[in-house]
Simulated scan of single mutants.
Amino acid sequence: MGKAVVAGVAAGRCSRVSRESYDQLALAMSRAEVEAVLGRADSCSGSLGIATCIWGDDTHIKVGFTADRVMLFTHKEL
């Protein structure tokens, strides 16, 4: 049963990495607004008020934040 829950969570993450969700992103969105669209990021890194977060693996959405506001966003293979 635990494996099914993990698989469901992973499937939910992947389904949010789509052209439709990418098209909802906009410059100056807050990090909370981005997470409302994409869910929690798979990875984030950064320092000094600048962060880069990635949702997905081979197919992914990458968002750059300055002071928790979107400054850029890109995608790969959507």
Rank of each mutant, 00 (worst) to 15 (best):
A4R: 06
V5F: 11
V5P: 10
V5T: 12
V6L: 05
V6F: 05
A7N: 07
A7S: 07
G8M: 02
G8W: 00
G8V: 02
V9P: 04
V9T: 04
A10T: 01
A10S: 00
A11G: 07
A11Q: 07
A11W: 00
G12H: 01
R13Q: 00
R13F: 00
C14Y: 13
C14F: 07
S15Q: 07
R16V: 01
R16M: 02
V17H: 10
S18I: 06
S18F: 02
S18V: 05
R19A: 10
R19E: 15
R19Q: 14
E20H: 05
E20N: 11
E20S: 13
S21N: 15
S21V: 08
S21D: 13
D23A: 01
D23I: 00
D23R: 03
Q24C: 11
Q24T: 14
L25R: 08
L25D: 15
L25P: 13
A26D: 15
A26M: 09
A28V: 06
A28Q: 10
M29C: 15
M29F: 14
S30P: 09
S30Q: 12
R31Y: 14
A32H: 08
A32W: 06
E33V: 03
E33C: 04
V34H: 03
V37W: 01
V37T: 14
L38K: 12
G39F: 05
R40W: 00
R40T: 08
R40I: 05
R40L: 07
A41S: 05
A41G: 01
D42Y: 00
D42T: 01
C44I: 01
S45H: 04
G46E: 00
G46N: 08
G46K: 01
L48V: 00
L48P: 01
G49Q: 01
I50L: 03
I50N: 09
I50C: 08
A51H: 08
A51Q: 09
A51N: 09
T52S: 15
T52F: 06
C53I: 03
C53T: 04
I54F: 02
I54A: 11
W55L: 04
G56W: 08
G56V: 03
G56I: 03
D57H: 13
D57M: 09
D58F: 07
T59R: 15
T59Q: 15
H60V: 05
H60W: 06
I61H: 06
K62C: 13
K62A: 15
K62Q: 14
V63R: 12
V63K: 11
V63F: 13
G64H: 10
F65V: 13
F65W: 14
F65E: 10
F65R: 14
F65H: 13
F65D: 13
T66R: 05
A67I: 05
D68M: 11
R69A: 08
R69M: 09
V70E: 02
V70Q: 04
M71R: 11
L72F: 14
F73G: 14
F73C: 09
T74E: 11
K76L: 11
E77T: 10
E77S: 14
L78F: 12
